[in-house]
Amino acid sequence: MSHSIFRTLLQHELKSYYRQAAKCLTPLAFYLLVVCLFPFALNAEKTVLQTCAAGIVWIALLLSLLMSFPRLFADDHQEGSLTQYCLQDTMLMPYISAKMLAHAFMHILPCLLLTPILGLLLYLSVRDIEILWLTILLGSPILLLIGSLGAALTLRAGQGSALLALILFPLYIPVLILALNCVTLATAGRPIAGLLAWLCAYACLCIALIPFAIKAILKIGVQ
C-alpha cells in the first residue's frame, strides 16, 4: 500500500521537476558560477587553485543546495497538499521520502555529474577528482537530510535562505571537515578508508533518525 503511494508521489515529484526545468537548472548554474568566481577572487595560478579546489567545490555545492531548500516543502504547504499529507499519517512518511529522493535525483545528481568538469577547471588531477567525487557522493545524503530538516523548521518562518543558512551551516561543519580531510589525506598519499567509513556512518545515522524528526516538525508546522 505505502509502496504504491511512494511510487505515485515520486513520479509526481519527478514530473513537476521535469515540467519546471528551471527549478533544477538554476541551482546547477549557480554551482558552476560560484566555482568560476574563485579564480578571479584568489588567483588563476595552478598551485593556488589546486590547493583550494576541493574546498571551493564543496562550498559551492553547499551554497547551491541552500538555494533549493527553502522551496522544498513551502510550495506544497502553500497549495495545501502538505496539510492533507499531514492529516493522513500513512501518507506523510512516503511523501517525505519521495520528496527527498526526487530532490536527490534532480539537484544532487546533476551537481555530481558536473563536479568532474569543475575539478578540471580547477586543475585537479583525475585521481583527486575521483576522491572529491566520492566524498560528495557519500556526503550528499547528509547534506540533503539536514537541509530538509532545516526546510521543515523554517517552513512557517518564510524568510528564505539567510535564516536557513544560519541554521544549516553550523550543522554542516562535521561533514565538511570529514570530506575535506579525506581529500587532503588522499593528496598526501595516505589511506582514507577509515574516513570514508566515518562519512558513511554519519550518513547512516542521518538516514535512520532525521526523517522522523522531519515528520514531527512538519506536523507541528501545518497546525
Binding site: T154, R156, A157, L166, I167, I217, Q223
Partner: peptide
Amino acid sequence: ALRSALPEEKTRDQISAW
C-alpha cells in the same frame, strides 16, 4: 533567529525546541 521569524507562539515553542 528562528524564534523571531516564527509568527505564532504555539508553533514557535515546539519548532524551536526541535
